[in-house]
Nucleic acid binder design. Structure first.
Lengths: 212, 212
DNA sequence: GTCTATACTGAGATAGAC
DNA sequence: GTCTATCTCAGTATAGAC
């Protein structure tokens, strides 16, 4: 079974550095020293390969997330868990994984950037996310359902930038500083907690907007 | 020169509906009724075609943005323009464009999802964005440079979800409601204003994180 | 069950005739 | 400016060796 793991490891390394679309199966099998058809034998397709690549590492992250949330909820004993606690339970397991397995986190970042996350989320995150969505919903009783829905979208959008390579919108704004993954995630949590708890935007159904 | 415009219009329609990667040049030229080589004659490459497709419509949006910001700054007369005003100047021109030209906004959304925005931003947004970044920076004197930098990243991440098709993290959470583009953008502005003005996260350089 | 060799289809790109 | 023909490389599929 060395072949399967050789493929997975090589693919992980290459996708982390080049992205998924830019990494061809032929490059993977070249560097892994295996045959092209072996990929399709073991995985069926390039997408399935990606899927298994993610699955073998994301599982433990999601288990940690659920465990943290379980602990918070039993501690809260029926009352809503505060937003920042829920967010911490979700994001901090990623910090630990990131320091232990930076390659894998880079892959996830690449996928975010390439827009492949929604479908992958649906597969591997669905049950985890629905737990967290419920917890967040309870913590935010004053936010309308539709506003809450969109704030979730914004959250995952912002998250994708936290794990991706930062974009230098204004060159020279940050001269090649080290961006510690853990501190970025912590900044993200602060940002999101504030966003989630913002006062509702005026709900004016299809009215004209006002000039500033 | 009808050929060039036929290509651009057809490409815009197809990319809006299928995405950039999923739309082949052969499909574009098929529906446009032109020859494959014409694309490379007029644009050079598929990416260049996309580039010109964006350029022909984004210019006016960016001009509106700058005009709005100019007005705010001269009105403020040296004092910082409040965060929410700056954000409105940036996002509201998109609302107007979205109602007048939904196809184009859908293309932008697709590109966000496919991770093609960073490079495009660099080309077409650079000067506009640096103006807005400066205005935001002045409005947020208490936020550290690094925290500000990351909040910018989060902002563009969240923005990308506002224009993309929403992801149904929890199925049935919103039964096929209409998501008015303008109200989503307004929700986004509220969310971002709160995130930007959040208290700074504790700046603890490479310390252990605390268990919750 | 595992893997190799090879072939198929469709993509973007290009050279050169008109 | 436009079109035909062709090139290279991608993901995929299958037949058959071990």
């Amino acid at each position: 079974m060395a072949t399967k793991d050789k493929i997975l490891d090589t693919a992980e390394r290459l996708i982390a550095n080049q992205g998924f679309a830019a990494t061809s199966l032929r490059q993977i099998i070249g560097e892994a020293g295996v045959n092209l058809a072996a990929v399709h034998y073991h995985f069926g397709s390039k997408e399935e390969l990606l899927d298994q690549l993610i699955l073998r590492k994301i599982t433990s992250v999601n288990e940690q997330r659920i465990a943290r949330l379980d602990a918070l909820e039993s501690e809260a004993d029926g009352r809503p868990v505060p937003v920042d606690r829920v967010l911490a339970a979700f994001f901090e397991p990623m910090i630990e994984t990131g320091s232990r397995n930076p390659q894998f986190v880079k892959v996830m970042a690449r996928l975010q950037g390439e827009g492949l996350i929604p479908s992958i989320m649906q597969k591997h995150f669905r049950s985890t996310i629905s737990r967290f969505v419920r917890a967040l919903r309870l913590a935010l009783p004053d936010v309308s359902q539709e506003e809450f829905f969109w704030r979730l979208q914004f959250m995952f959008g912002a998250m994708s930038r936290a794990v991706s390579d930062p974009v230098d919108f204004v060159p020279g704004m940050l001269k090649d500083e080290r961006h510690e993954f853990s501190s970025v995630i912590r900044r993200l949590m602060v940002f999101l907690a504030a966003g989630f708890q913002a006062p509702a935007s005026m709900e004016m159904p299809q009215e004209q907007e006002v000039q500033a």
